[in-house]
């Protein structure tokens, strides 16, 4: 009987130790500020701000608007991602570039850009006003700003997920008499589900953490990042830190819960 590879793992070389040390530095860079903000805050401070209606409202607003923006945009983004994964067409490279554009545009610029097309006297602004939707200074505008900066995360993840689904499975389903829509809903979507869910979580998380673009489109009603910024500007670090901790804790808990939920299903990668 042969020994397993695991049993014969070679000792770590200096190169590997160097890589581990570098990785440790990066991890420390991420963990230290987060840990620091927790260690500097006391339970009493956090409980105090949790009692404030303004704080609670802003956190709730941030959560539901980012969630709503994600779900509404997913209706268009998920089928579009499938199309991108399966089809080649002229100028596909340019389309892919456009999708990634919001990632590199500075977020304050994104806010100004959105404002340019949704303000009154523009086609979108007038149309939405006619529909009774006011985009400036409302949750609608917040959702638009959040979606603008976060939509590439969903499309990229879903596109990769669909690309990993073997086309052969879809062909077999078609051969068994399924319509293309049925194939999409019963084969492609379930098999790409984990990637789509990951994209949804990323889009939601990125939207929730947006500050710059939202600040320009809708300072009020205040989402949590704007409220934290305002408290910092008006009262300083001591007063903005407990809200930051509270908001981050809520976000972390939701992030972990959704990740656990999404990891339960099988997908194309098994």
């Amino acid at each position: 009987m042969g020994l397993s590879y695991r049993g014969h793992r070679p000792p770590l070389s200096w190169l590997h130790l160097t890589f581990i040390a570098l990785g440790g530095l990066v991890l420390f860079f991420i963990v230290a500020p987060i840990l620091g903000i927790y260690l500097k805050s006391t339970y009493g401070e956090i409980a105090e701000v949790a009692k404030e209606a303004e704080v609670r409202d802003s956190i709730w607003l941030t959560l539901w608007v980012s969630m709503a923006a994600t779900l509404v945009f997913s209706i268009a983004c998920v089928p579009f991602s499938y199309f991108l994964a399966r089809k080649t067409f002229p100028l596909k490279g340019i389309v892919m570039g456009i999708i990634d554009l919001p990632v590199i545009v500075p977020h304050s610029v994104a806010g100004i850009a959105i404002l340019t097309v949704v303000s009154r006297d523009t086609l979108i602004g007038d149309t939405s006003e006619w529909l009774g939707i006011d985009l400036i200074g409302t949750p609608w505008g917040i959702a638009a700003a959040m979606a603008f900066v976060s939509v590439p995360f969903l499309i990229s993840a879903a596109r990769d997920g669909f690309a990993a689904v073997p086309e052969r499975l879809e062909n077999v389903a078609l051969g068994l008499g399924a319509s293309p829509l049925r194939v999409f809903l019963t084969i492609s979507m379930p098999l790409a589900w984990r990637a789509i869910a990951s994209g949804l979580i990323l889009m939601w998380g990125r939207g929730m953490s947006e500050f710059g673009a939202v600040l320009i489109i809708a300072y009020h009603p205040m989402i949590a990042p704007v409220l934290i910024y305002e408290r910092f500007g008006a009262f300083g670090l001591k007063y903005s830190r407990p809200i930051s901790v509270l908001f981050m804790t809520v976000c972390l808990l939701m992030f972990i819960a959704l990740r656990l939920l999404a990891s339960g299903k099988k997908n194309a990668e098994g």
Partner: peptide, 14 residues
């Protein structure tokens, strides 16, 4: 109304 069976069976894994 043609049935195709592949070498790798292509069963739906989910």
């Amino acid at each position: 109304n043609i049935g195709l069976v592949y070498q790798d069976q292509a069963l739906f894994p989910h």
